[in-house]
Design a binder for these strands. Structure first.
Length: 213
DNA sequence: AACGCGTTCAACCGCCGATTG
DNA sequence: GCAATCGGCGGTTGAACGCGT
């Protein structure tokens, strides 16, 4: 039996690093013959010198049919923001509402954009320290203006989020009692909310600081 | 053209819960 | 009931790439 996944990788001598086209081919052939799952037996049956974990990751994130390659659309972006506000860093849960997108992809996307935001605010702080007094006053006025705008947006955002949380718990209860079909409805509902947001504000990046649910 | 810096993304790591014997 | 094993998840890393200077 293959010794402990993950923890025993080094002792096992699995190949690591980027996948070659040959390895991809072997893995695809294995999955088309045996289906997804039983990852620990992939190396035995397919001749791949990769851990089951590595194979699963490669399949899920790269080889699986139906994966969307390319940029996250504004709609998808909106859904990510909405669901992240509801669930936090539950990337796999969020990914379930974005067909063709992987948790890894979403995670990377979120991280990239949040880091960006973080850095830009840090830069602002640095700049503040360098500019003359008059400019500081002007900037403060501008920031107050922006802050009041944000307040307005966040108030609406807060109301929306409250609705979202109620809706979600409602769906959750229904899901427990009835059938998994409900999750599909929730997905379209999320879509609707996102479109609603866009109609109102024409973009969502001001709404990053959602209260974590 | 060369260099440095920032961004993106594939892949790995460690942990945890579920399953199995 | 318990330990071993497995699959899945979130966090992190590092190579590749693009862009500005």
């Amino acid at each position: 039996m293959v010794a402990m996944m993950g923890r025993g990788i080094a002792e096992q001598g699995w190949r690591k690093g980027p996948w070659t086209p040959e390895e991809d081919k072997l893995l695809s052939e294995y999955v088309s013959l045996n289906g997804e799952g039983r990852w620990s037996s992939v190396s035995r049956c397919s001749g791949l010198n990769r851990s089951g974990k590595s194979c699963r990751l490669r399949w899920v994130n790269y080889l699986r049919p139906g994966l969307k390659r390319g940029q996250i659309t504004p709609q998808e972006e909106g859904i990510i923001i909405e669901l992240h506000a509801l669930w936090g860093n539950k990337w796999s849960a969020i990914a379930r509402y974005l067909p063709g997108r992987t948790d890894n992809e979403i995670k990377n996307y979120w991280r990239t954009h949040f880091k960006k935001k973080d850095k830009s605010s840090q830069k602002q702080e640095k700049r503040k320290a360098l500019i003359p007094k008059q400019e500081v006053q002007n900037q403060q006025q501008q920031q107050q203006l922006e802050a009041s705008e944000m307040k307005m947006v966040n108030t609406i955002d807060h109301v929306k989020m409250h609705e979202a949380q109620e809706m979600y718990s409602m769906y959750h209860n229904m899901e427990d009692q009835c059938s998994p079909v409900m999750t599909q409805d929730f997905a379209s509902w999320a879509d609707y909310v996102v479109e609603d947001y866009y109609g109102l504000w024409g973009g969502l990046w001001n709404l990053d600081d959602h209260p974590q649910g």
